[in-house]
Nucleic acid binder design. Structure first.
Length: 927
RNA sequence: GGGCCCAUAGCUCAGCCCCGGUCAGAGCGCGCGCCUGAUAAGCGCGAGGUCGAAGGUUCAACUCCUUCUGGGCCCA
């Protein structure tokens, strides 16, 4: 007779094969259709707010794996905090203005660019941004990221622009904004100033030249006088900046020497660099004639190498002994440090290069020539004048524009700046960094602190079309730019209604209050200026434009969460804007993650061809596997991604999924009304629940500490442990008992708790699968994402109980090894064919174990287990030394139903192939 | 070149930080085997690490210090 049908085998529709690429989008549609995100919010209305402010990604293409990582981490937290009972409204944002989009728009225009007005270009940019916002929004939602996707925040939204501009107005009102002539990074292709964040360094071959600066007045200096004539020698890799030279800078504390080199020439150079410089410049073996400190040479004059000017010998702490001669060519129009040091000497910058990188009439010999092309000519000119000591080539890192991918130049221009020293802003920022913000990991503090401490004033203006105009006016009377609060206010009024296009569209008069006069000259003739704000201001202002504007949000936010590059980027700009405009930081805590690396630990880049697309991953493995990977990695350091890693994560996913499936299958005929009371649970059920309680406790802590990789390892290991130790052991009860048998219901009760807790513990990480499980377990009612996060404590066990079970686990290993031995000797196959004898060599231990013989039999999944006394072994300490396991073939016969071996088989005449228990169950089923 | 960070089995992580001292642990993968009532599953056993390298402190270092190497982010 076939007794299989009398068994309670698992039954579930929950498929083993996840088929996530197909099933996730279906579930997503249902979530969207039923406004799940809104319902989650509704459920927590009135609860304490928890605000995670989304750093807006730049909307200019498909999302990449870094986006997926960042948004997954945010979503995990948002879901976790919601389940913990907080009111968490997640408003995703998009950064819409800026050069990358403008560039794309211009590319599409081709040669017609020149015919287009700023308004037309802006309209195109708007279209591009809108297109990519839609694209990215869909991709993020596909990832399972919940939130206000119907109403994301856009930095191009007129309301958002108006609020950002109001913050700008407050900063202007605070007196922080000034117009200055300063060297800035300049992209000659796009003809705009660049922020530090818009620069990347690339390998670049530059000329490496040594140039003589003949000293004009050596007789004024005691050290030089006896050795005249003397040349200061400078080293530079940018010959084109030589027309802008106004000084030669020495370090006050370095030792400089007068040395005689090849041809009897006498030069000045830093002592430490003399040898290397003479070797490099092929000047032979130098002979030192005199020595002095840099400060002794201050104030001497050299002749300018190219113009009828003089170059002053000055001192600066920034001079180093790394390369060159220790005498630094200084062109205040072409370098920030040069500018600063010259300022101390009252030297005004000389800047003969126009916005396209061509020389102007200020350097007539090369007017109209591109600086890069000018290099060679200048070298020729120097040679002709006998000033070139040596020319070579050098390959080094040189700043490139992140958009034009061409080398940039540094040129002094008129720009709007945010003054870091005004009202002690820098100091206030530094104090806020140390005292008011929690940095996670903690080293982020030192990182951003050093950056803020060292950064120059923030260059706020750009000469572009796609951004928020700075409503400054050129006052004809004063002959300069003015930024008037009244004008800004008027501008904002229009922006609110019409967007920032109004600056281009409306006549100047619209922005001028009645009787407006230039505060400097009293004049009334103005022209609009068309610089725009650095996009970093747009995003740096979102604490005001977004958080302050929505009563469901708040500023400061509880958390900003971005990659560690944002210490220089968004965290930085947000901090400065908020400190200047509001006097407080925009966030309470800042969490950073590392960067993606490939399997070799190298950065991912298109050029290396090692990029992995999140869209491909979702298409082939599903969002949950991708998210499980995110959770599995300790994101505080670098994050690895490779084929093998995703294969490993997929394995883990399958293990978790199968555990859910097994639980569901065995709970098919169970509901809460059939749950066993605590007193009815077997000891092993209580053990399993105690382990579950531990898991809940530890996972909760891990979430609280943002250590999602611990959540992953903890839950995955729990599934593994339970599969092997608990779920395997209780199969006999589950399958073979009568369906309503109390011990079976007890096991199901434990499994139900396990299922419920596990699904909720994992819901933030694998939202699709957890929800699928929840639906399979409880029907199509509430989503798991509306449930509360499990709380520990309900089934906590005392130490003695846990220790008792640790010993059982150790015994299980001992027995398992012996069973394996018996298997190898072909004595047994399945463990139920075995009978175990535990020979215990310690009387005390024997007394304890003897009482648990039947429990051990179950744990070992064998047909019988005897605990016997053995001659005591001296000095036996480990369990292994105290207990010896013997394996024999079990007595009796195999029950055809439960496969246990017992002498009872055959006692029931009706069911001669069954053991007593099974015969009994079958008879009752038949009744 | 500067600031900050990372470096433990093939892979992902524990342990290390603020208290140095059991044969450095887990899971996955891998090898071998069992089961065929979780079956494109489940169970068991096993093999994998001179804890990036070199010095130093110490009776004793994966754990503390220094230097170096490789890698990352941000700058120059």
């Amino acid at each position: 007779m076939d007794y299989r049908s009398t068994l309670n085998l698992p039954a579930t529709n929950f498929p083993m094969k996840a088929n996530l690429p197909v099933r996730e989008p279906e579930r997503l549609k249902r979530w969207q259709g039923t406004s799940l995100s809104d319902r989650i919010l509704e459920k927590r209305r009135g609860a304490p707010k928890w605000v995670l402010h989304d750093g807006p990604p730049y909307a200019n293409g498909d999302i990449h794996l870094g986006h997926a990582l960042n948004k997954s981490l945010k979503d995990i937290l948002v879901r976790y905090k919601s389940m913990k009972g907080f009111y968490v409204k997640y408003v995703p944002g998009f950064d819409c203005h800026g050069l990358p989009i403008e560039q794309k728009a211009l590319e599409s225009l081709g040669a017609k660019v020149k015919e287009k007005s700023p308004l037309e270009i802006r309209r195109l940019c708007h279209q591009f941004a809108t297109k990519y916002i839609g694209l990215q929004s869909g991709q993020f939602q596909r990832l399972g990221v919940g939130g206000q996707w119907k109403t994301p925040y856009l930095t191009l939204d007129p309301k958002v622009e108006a609020r950002a501009l109001r913050l700008f107005r407050d900063i202007v009102a605070g007196g922080y904004v000034y117009k200055g002539f300063r060297p800035v990074y300049w992209d000659p292709i796009f003809q705009t100033a660049l922020a530090e964040a818009e620069i990347e360094y690339e390998e670049h071959v530059s000329p490496s030249i040594y140039v003589r600066f003949p000293c004009l007045d050596p007789e004024k200096n005691e050290v030089l006088r006896p050795h005249a004539p003397i040349n200061f020698v400078i080293w530079t890799t940018t010959p084109w900046t030589l027309p802008g030279n106004l000084a030669v800078c020495l370090h006050p504390d370095f030792t400089y020497v007068v040395a005689e080199v090849a041809g009897g020439e006498r030069v000045v150079a830093a002592e430490e660099l003399l040898q290397s410089f003479c070797t490099d410049a092929k000047l032979g073996e130098p002979k030192v004639l005199a020595k002095c400190k840099g400060r002794d040479l201050e104030g001497l004059h050299c002749s300018h190498p190219l113009l009828e000017k003089q170059s002053l010998v000055i001192l600066g702490e920034h001079v180093t002994l790394e390369q060159g001669t220790g005498c630094v060519h200084t062109a205040p129009g072409h370098g920030a440090e040069d500018f600063d040091v010259c300022k101390k000497y009252g030297i005004e910058p000389f800047q003969p290069v126009d916005e396209a990188g061509r020389f102007t009439e200020l350097y007539p010999p090369m007017q109209g020539v591109q600086v890069w092309e000018a290099n060679q000519t200048i070298i020729g000119e120097l040679t002709a004048r006998g000033l070139l000591a040596h020319v070579g080539k050098i390959t080094h890192q040189y700043p490139y524009s992140w958009r034009s991918h061409r080398p940039i130049i540094v040129r002094a221009t008129e720009q709007w700046f945010l003054a870091l020293e005004h009202k002690g802003l820098r100091q206030k920022c530094l104090e806020a960094i140390q005292n008011s913000v929690q940095w996670i990991p903690k080293w982020g503090e030192a990182r951003i602190y050093n950056m803020v401490a060292a950064r120059p004033d923030w260059c706020l203006s750009r000469q572009r079309a796609w951004g928020m105009p700075i409503p400054s006016l050129h006052s004809k009377g004063a002959g300069k730019s003015i930024l008037a609060l009244e004008v800004i206010d008027r501008f904002i009024e229009y922006v609110e209604k019409e967007g920032t296009d109004c600056w281009y569209r409306r006549p100047l008069e619209d922005f001028l209050p009645e009787g407006f006069q230039c505060p400097e000259s009293g004049g009334t003739e103005f022209e609009k200026e068309y610089d725009i704000l650095d996009v970093w201001f747009d995003s740096g202002a979102t604490h005001a434009s977004i958080l302050e504007a929505d009563p469901d949000l708040a500023s400061p936010a509880d958390l900003y969460l971005e990659g560690s590059d944002q210490h220089r980027g968004w965290f930085h700009s947000s901090l400065l804007a908020s400190m200047a405009g509001r006097g407080r930081p925009p966030y309470r805590a800042v969490l950073t993650h590392g960067f993606l690396l490939d399997e070799k630990g190298e950065a991912m880049s298109k050029s290396k061809g090692n990029v992995i697309s999140p869209l491909d991953l979702m298409k082939h493995m599903g969002a949950d596997v991708l998210r499980l990977w995110v959770a599995s990695e300790d994101y505080r350091g670098d994050i690895r991604a490779s084929k093998e890693i995703f294969e490993r994560v997929s394995e883990a996913y399958r293990r978790i999924r199968n555990t859910f499936r097994f639980l569901l299958g065995n709970l098919a005929d169970f509901d809460e009304t059939r749950a066993a009371a605590d007193g009815e649970l077997d000891e092993i059920d209580r053990w399993a629940l105690a382990r579950l309680d531990q898991l809940v406790e530890r996972v909760g802590q891990a979430y609280e500490q943002y250590e999602f990789h611990r959540v992953y390892h903890l839950t995955h290991s729990f599934c593994v442990e339970m599969s092997a130790a608990y779920l395997d052991v209780i199969k006999d009860r589950l399958y073979c008992s009568a369906p309503a048998d109390r011990t079976r219901r007890a096991a199901q009760t434990a499994m139900r708790e396990m299922l419920s807790a596990l699904a909720r513990l994992l819901a933030p990480i694998i939202p699709f699968t957890a929800d699928e499980v929840w639906e399979a377990a409880y029907g199509g009612g509430e989503s798991v994402h509306l449930a509360d996060f499990p709380a520990p404590g309900g089934r906590a066990a005392d130490e003695a109980f846990l220790q008792r079970w640790e010993r059982f686990a150790a015994l299980r290993e001992i027995v398992a090894r012996k069973l394996e031995e018996a298997r190898r000797e072909k004595k047994i196959g399945a463990s139920l064919e075995a009978a175990v004898a535990l020979r215990v060599k310690t009387p005390a231990l024997y007394e304890v174990l003897a009482l648990d013989a039947d429990l051990l039999r179950q744990l070992f999944i064998v047909s019988s287990c005897k605990v016997e006394r053995a001659p005591s072994a001296a000095g036996a300490e480990t369990l292994e030394e105290q207990v010896e396991a013997e394996i024999r073939l079990a007595d009796g016969a195999k029950c055809e139903r439960c496969w246990n071996w017992t002498k009872e088989v055959g006692q029931n005449a009706e069911h001669p192939a069954l053991c007593v228990r099974c015969a009994d169950v079958v008879e009752r089923l038949n009744r």
